[in-house]
């Protein structure tokens, strides 16, 4: 379970997009995880064959938990499946040891034999086939009766997590992060008055010749100015990690965007010093998609906010 935000402590599995036996390659989105900031697609950073899913849909697990195991590329197949924390940061050691593979689970790369009726029934019951330890059919294949037996005996997984954005959860996450920030980080405040007449005049001239879609909002100038200032003040661009400041060579500005009906996200504008984009394109409009690409939640190396931009 990767940390999909600095304040994320746990996530709930919403959907597996791959199944045991599937070949995966670095960059594939393999699982959808529900966090307090919405459902997020998680990539894998390794090639191989998915041998074992360890966390079923609906389960909430702490950051660092091993979600699945993949076997190495063919030819270099290790005798045992290597446990990997999918897309987890190297700095975050698994909080939970991977449970040893269950003995009756199909070995890596081998499909679980199952009759179509059993597969349908298992899906209807939201029951992972890997959780059915023993098939009683031909060559150990899983039959309908095995599914029923497993369903009556096994504790059913909780219903799938609520999908999409849960705004009250998001408010809780923001409140927790802000309280912690105020409590643990010394704050100081600097103010500076800048004459913006030249900037305003420039924007007026720029926009006057443009169709509406290409016009820019004044906030874009603040972003660009912040990004250029960070080039000169690299000590303000980065993050504290493991007790030390780690400067970033790239300038990604987290831009606080208030969501309609409450809530807040801070998507990072990547390489803001080099490519400030037009303000009125899809990337900047208030997001309504609730399933976010992971890139969208990438942490900024600096955060900027335009209070004037808020509704009055």
């Amino acid at each position: 379970m990767p940390a999909l935000g600095a304040d994320m402590e746990a996530g709930t599995l919403v959907e597996w997009l791959v199944k045991p036996g599937d070949r995966v390659k670095s960059g594939d989105v393999i699982v959808v995880v529900e966090t307090q900031k919405g459902a997020i697609e998680v990539e894998i950073f390794q090639d191989g064959v998915l041998s074992n899913i360890l966390v079923p849909v609906g389960e909430r697990v702490p950051v660092g938990t091993v979600l699945a195991q993949i076997a190495g590329a063919p030819g270099a197949a290790p005798p045992r499946a290597e446990a990997v924390a999918v897309a987890a940061k190297p700095a975050a050691p698994p909080l939970v040891e991977a449970p040893p593979p269950r003995p009756a689970v199909a070995p890596p790369g081998q499909r679980i034999k199952v009759t179509p009726a059993a597969r349908r029934r298992a899906a209807a019951l939201n029951l992972g086939l890997a959780t059915i330890l023993k098939g009683t059919g031909v060559e150990g294949s899983i039959r309908l009766a095995d599914v029923e037996a497993a369903a009556s005996g096994a504790k059913l997984p909780p219903p799938p997590a609520k999908r999409g954005l849960d705004l009250s959860e998001m408010r809780k996450a923001i409140a927790a992060a802000m309280s912690r920030s105020k409590r643990e980080i010394p704050h100081y405040y600097l103010t500076e008055t800048v004459d913006l007449q030249a900037a305003w005049s420039w924007i007026e001239r720029f926009n006057a010749e443009k169709p509406p879609i290409e016009r820019i909002l004044p906030a874009v100038l603040f972003l660009k100015a912040a990004a250029l200032a960070l080039r000169e003040q690299p000590q303000l661009n980065g993050a504290y990690e493991n007790g030390a400041f780690a400067p970033s060579s790239d300038i990604h500005i987290g831009w606080a965007v208030s969501l309609r009906s409450g809530g807040l996200i801070a998507p990072a504008i990547l390489d803001a010093d080099k490519n400030i984009a037009r303000p009125i394109d899809g990337g900047h409009a208030r997001p309504r998609r609730t399933r976010q690409a992971r890139e969208f939640t990438k942490l900024g190396t600096h955060v900027a906010h335009d209070h004037r931009h808020e509704r009055r």
């Binding site: 007026e204 926009n207 006057a208 169709p211 509406p212 879609i213 016009r215 909002l217 906030a219 208030s258 309609r260 303000p279 009125i280 900047h284 409009a285 208030r286 931009h309 808020e310 509704r311």
Partner: peptide
């Protein structure tokens, strides 16, 4: 509850729909 971005998007939508490019002024 429209902020400046929403209002800019409204101007864009008007332009798309009825081809009137409203100047910023």
């Amino acid at each position: 509850d429209l902020d400046s971005m929403d209002f800019a998007n409204l101007i864009v939508a008007i332009h798309d729909r009825i081809k009137i490019a409203i100047p910023e002024v």
